[in-house]
């Protein structure tokens, strides 16, 4: 017997086991600490932004959390590396609305690529914040939120 669950697909399980960009960037231009006080997920996102070109040259994260939060962080960092700041904010908006069930990438034009994997989470309201924590933290870093961000 095993679970057949739309949320826990192989890609997500793989990124949980082997998270990409799971490291600190010593020379980061931006960083932010994010917490989900309800479940204790805790992470820091680092970015190295080329300010002249407005491009994310490098992005990484460290922290603790569930498989959804870790896989979401891992996939986010892999996806945003090399993207412009403008694109990144558009993707954040689409992703954020998708997990809340307010944006359907299956019906609407989007820039989400493989991040559509997280579409299933809209069926699990208690878990949406697990998927969005990394994204809020990334935006917090770009917005210089030195006090950190919280999902609550």
């Amino acid at each position: 017997m095993s679970y057949d669950n739309e949320l826990y697909q192989q890609v997500i399980l793989d990124h949980n086991r082997n998270p990409r960009n799971f490291r600190e960037i010593k020379s980061a231009t931006h960083s932010c600490h994010g917490v989900n006080p309800l479940c204790g997920d805790d992470m820091t996102v680092y970015l190295d932004v080329d300010s002249e070109k407005g491009v994310i040259q490098d992005i990484s994260f460290v922290g603790t959390g569930c498989a959804i939060s870790k896989a979401s962080s891992s996939l986010m960092t892999a996806f945003l590396k090399g993207k412009s700041l403008e694109e990144s904010r558009v993707i954040f908006n689409e992703f954020h609305k998708m997990v809340l069930g307010e944006f359907d990438p299956e019906k609407q034009e989007n820039h989400l690529g493989k991040l559509k994997l997280f579409l299933g989470i809209r069926e699990y309201p208690s878990r949406t914040k697990c998927a969005s924590l990394a994204w809020h933290t990334m935006i917090g870093a770009l917005d210089r939120k030195t006090e950190g961000v919280s999902t609550e």
């Binding site: 679970y3 669950n5 949320l7 826990y8 309800l38 479940c39 204790g40 959390g65 569930c66 498989a67 959804i68 699990y124 208690s126 878990r127 697990c130």
Partner: peptide, 26 residues
């Protein structure tokens, strides 16, 4: 192998209601 929140979501698939979290006792 797995974080308590993942455990909670998956056990729910079998109709099992457990609590995963810090239990308001950080």
């Amino acid at each position: 192998a797995a974080h308590p929140h993942d455990v909670g979501t998956l056990l729910d698939q079998d109709g099992i209601a457990v609590r995963g979290g810090h239990h308001c006792a950080q």
